[in-house]
Simulated scan of single mutants.
Amino acid sequence: MKANNSIFKAFRVEEVDSAFKTSIKDMAVSPLNEDEIRVKVHYSSLNYKDALSVSGNKGVTRHFPHTPGIDAVGIIEESSSDAWQIGDQVIVTSYDLGMNTDGGFAEYITVPAHWAVKLPETLTMKDAMIYGTAGLTAGMSVLRLTQLVKPDDGKVVVSGATGGVGALSVAILNTLGYTVVAITGKESESDFLKAQGASEILLRNDIENFEKKPLLKPLFAGGIDTVGGVILENIIKATQPMGAVTSCGNVASPKLDLTVFPFILRGVTLIGIDSQNYPMNYRTEVWNYLASDWKISQLEDTATEITLEQVDEKIQLMLKGQLKGRTVIKITE
């Protein structure tokens, strides 16, 4: 079965005289290869990788013109795979979507069938994109952290807490009964973070200026770090014995300047989170948790809905660090 429309709209990035320009263009669908699906996209969402792609970052996207969008949810309109049928509702995130494969900022995506996850029945399409890769990453982090750290063990800390992964991590942990300390560089967003479930706010400058010692006073039972660098170093050094910290980002720095003392004297565990290539069985498990036991009651409060025409404006704000929470893009009805 062919998709209903042979022409569709997409947010395109083009390289012109070493500059990167964006526009909404008409695109033509192409025939499916073996084991591919074509999805009519209903919602996408905005992520930092999308902003980097739009900016022409060759570490994210090597070739232009290109359609960004590492998240998409919609309905399958064409399938060459036995795993999926026409009409199935699916989520597609990470892998190569929106990086070097045209992504979710378009009315249609064409992707390998094994990239798709069935949309849980208790999750709307919009909810799925409020979560998106950020929610999946937060969920992966929570899943691993909760295997080693329980609510009664003490406070858990979340860095980059006004960002997508951070805000959702705060909200999920609060839903599960944890006492959450939120780290932010934006003191003005304290009310936002407390609304997500943070019981305490720790300013970024304060944790960056902790004493430069191999070990610090134990403050946290565990943590979810989204930024790397000095903040992750100090979270690890201030984690109590047998605590655990997850790491999923490097916006502050990819480098760590640590001794092994937190690991060999306190038994602290550092857990890496790779959301791009996370195994499908774990993805499915996390999505099902996000749709049930972990579902955030105030989920829509974390998100702003926009159209394709507003994407460029929001990306510029994201690059300036002026966005909070999640930005969802409504593509089609």
Rank of each mutant, 00 (worst) to 15 (best):
S169H: 12
V156A: 00
G135S: 10
G139V: 09
T146P: 04
V156Y: 03
V156S: 06
S159A: 13
G164H: 10
D152F: 00
K150M: 02
G160Q: 09
G139Y: 06
D153H: 15
T146K: 14
V165S: 02
A138D: 00
T146C: 11
V156N: 04
V149W: 04
V156H: 02
L136E: 14
V156L: 07
V158C: 08
D152L: 11
S169E: 00
V158F: 01
M140V: 11
L143S: 14
G135D: 08
T137L: 10
G164N: 09
R144K: 15
G163R: 07
G166W: 11
M140I: 14
V157S: 06
A138P: 07
L145Q: 03
V170C: 13
A167L: 14
V142S: 10
D153R: 00
L168A: 10
V170M: 11
V170P: 02
V156C: 01
L168K: 13
L145P: 02
G139E: 05
T162H: 05
M140W: 05
P151M: 10
V149L: 04
S169C: 07
G154Q: 06
R144D: 14
V149R: 05
L168E: 07
R144S: 14
G166P: 08
Q147H: 14
R144G: 00
G166V: 06
G163D: 12
D152P: 00
S141L: 00
V158G: 01
V158E: 02
A161L: 04
T146L: 04
V156I: 14
G164V: 00
L136A: 12
G164Q: 11
D152M: 12
S169R: 07
V158P: 03
K150Y: 02
S141P: 06
G163Q: 13
G164M: 01
S169K: 09
T137N: 05
L136H: 15
A167I: 15
M140P: 01
T146S: 13
V156T: 06
M140E: 13
L145G: 08
M140H: 12
V149K: 04
S159E: 13
S159D: 09
G160K: 03
M140N: 12
V156D: 00
A138K: 01
D152R: 14
K150H: 14
V158L: 05
G166E: 10
P151G: 12
V158H: 07
M140C: 12
D152E: 15
G160S: 12
G154E: 09
L136D: 03
L148G: 01
G160F: 08
A138M: 10
L136R: 13
V156G: 05
S159K: 13
G160V: 08
S169A: 14
V158K: 04
G135I: 06
M140T: 08
V142F: 05
G135Q: 05
A161Q: 06
V170H: 07
A138F: 09
V158T: 11
P151N: 14
L143E: 15
L145F: 08
V149H: 03
V170E: 12
G166T: 11
S141V: 02
S141I: 00
G163W: 03
V149P: 03
K155W: 02
A138V: 05
D152Q: 15
T162R: 07
T137Q: 06
A161V: 00
G154V: 02
T137V: 11
G166Q: 05
L136P: 11
K150R: 15
V170R: 02
A161I: 04
G154M: 03
